Every structure is written in structure tokens, then in C-alpha cells.
Simulated scan of single mutants.
Amino acid sequence: MTVQPDTGEIQQAPVAAFLARHLNGRTDEELSTEFHTLLDAVRAHGKKGSMTITIVVDPPANGVESAPMPIGIESAVKAPKPTPVKSLYFLDNDGMPVREDPRQTQLDFRTAPTTTDYKDA
């Protein structure tokens, strides 16, 4: 933040311009890639997602006022994921998941004999 001595106007550095210049533009490229990955995932899964950008500022080394301040950019993307496919199971008497209902009685099926003799009507 800079104060203009003749007008007293306060000038602040635009955050977007800072992000675009940080690490010679590499941060902007990485954030853009993550942003478009998020957009693709939201479009593909029809669910919301989010992206958080954090600017981390460390104090100057050894508390020296004129020393440089380390500034880093961190990002976190919470992209939606596909809903996992589920399958239905029953619990048997031992509490184990099984595909067939243990309370249902089993019917023994057998193949009916085949014939080629047809009765004329």
C-alpha cells in the first residue's frame, strides 16, 4: 500500500495482478489448470466443487524491517467425484454380508424335460 504524497490517495496492489506475476507467471498457469480441472469435474458429475487460494505471507527474516517478505501461494481443489456404484446385500445370522436373503427359503429348480412330440389340435 502506497500513499500518494500530493493527493493523499492510497494505492493498493491488485491481487489479480500479483497472482499473475508471482513466480514469473507459473502460479497463474498452475491455478488456471486447477480451475479448469475443477470446471470439467463439475460439468462431468453435475455436482458442486470448490477451489481455495491462500496467500501465505511470512514476516521478514530476523525481524528486520527492510528485509524481504517471503510470500507463497497455496491452493486446494475439492472437485466432485462420481457417485460410487452400490450393490445390495443381506446380513446372515453371523452378521456377514451375503447376496441372497437368508430368510428366503430356497427352491430347488430343475430343468423340465424337453420333447419334440407335439399334440395336434
Rank of each mutant, 00 (worst) to 15 (best):
M1G: 14
T2C: 04
T2R: 09
T2F: 10
T2K: 12
V3P: 00
P5K: 10
D6F: 01
D6C: 03
T7P: 03
T7A: 03
T7M: 02
E9K: 07
E9N: 04
E9A: 09
E9H: 04
E9D: 09
E9C: 03
I10Q: 09
Q11R: 07
Q12M: 05
Q12L: 09
Q12S: 05
A13K: 06
P14G: 08
V15S: 05
A17T: 05
F18C: 01
F18V: 01
L19F: 06
A20L: 07
R21Q: 14
H22R: 10
L23S: 13
L23C: 08
N24Y: 02
N24V: 02
N24S: 09
G25P: 02
T27P: 00
T27M: 04
T27L: 02
D28M: 10
E29T: 05
L31D: 00
T33V: 06
E34R: 03
E34Q: 13
E34F: 00
F35E: 03
F35A: 03
H36P: 00
T37D: 08
L39E: 07
A41F: 01
R43T: 13
R43Q: 09
H45K: 01
H45D: 04
H45Q: 15
G46E: 08
G46Q: 03
K47S: 13
K47F: 06
K48Q: 12
K48A: 10
K48C: 03
S50M: 08
S50Q: 03
S50K: 05
M51F: 08
T52Y: 03
T54A: 14
I55L: 14
P59H: 07
P60C: 07
P60H: 06
A61G: 11
A61T: 15
A61Q: 15
N62Q: 12
N62W: 12
N62R: 13
G63N: 07
E65I: 12
E65P: 03
E65K: 10
S66D: 13
A67P: 05
A67L: 05
P68A: 06
P70L: 09
P70Q: 02
P70A: 10
I71D: 00
G72D: 12
I73Q: 03
E74R: 12
S75A: 10
S75V: 03
A76S: 06
A76K: 06
V77I: 11
V77H: 02
K78C: 01
K78N: 15
K78H: 13
A79M: 03
A79L: 01
K81L: 12
T83G: 07
P84D: 10
P84T: 06
V85Q: 12
V85L: 14
V85K: 08
K86V: 11
S87A: 10
L88W: 04
Y89K: 07
F90W: 14
F90T: 06
L91E: 14
L91R: 13
D92P: 01
N93Q: 11
D94Q: 11
G95C: 06
G95P: 02
G95H: 07
M96N: 15
P97F: 15
P97N: 06
V98Q: 05
R99G: 00
R99A: 11
E100A: 13
D101E: 09
D101T: 03
D101P: 01
R103Y: 12
R103M: 08
R103N: 13
Q104K: 15
L107S: 09
L107V: 15
D108C: 06
D108A: 15
F109G: 15
R110T: 14
T111K: 15
T111G: 01
A112H: 02
A112M: 09
P113I: 05
P113V: 04
T115F: 01
T116G: 11
D117A: 12
K119H: 14
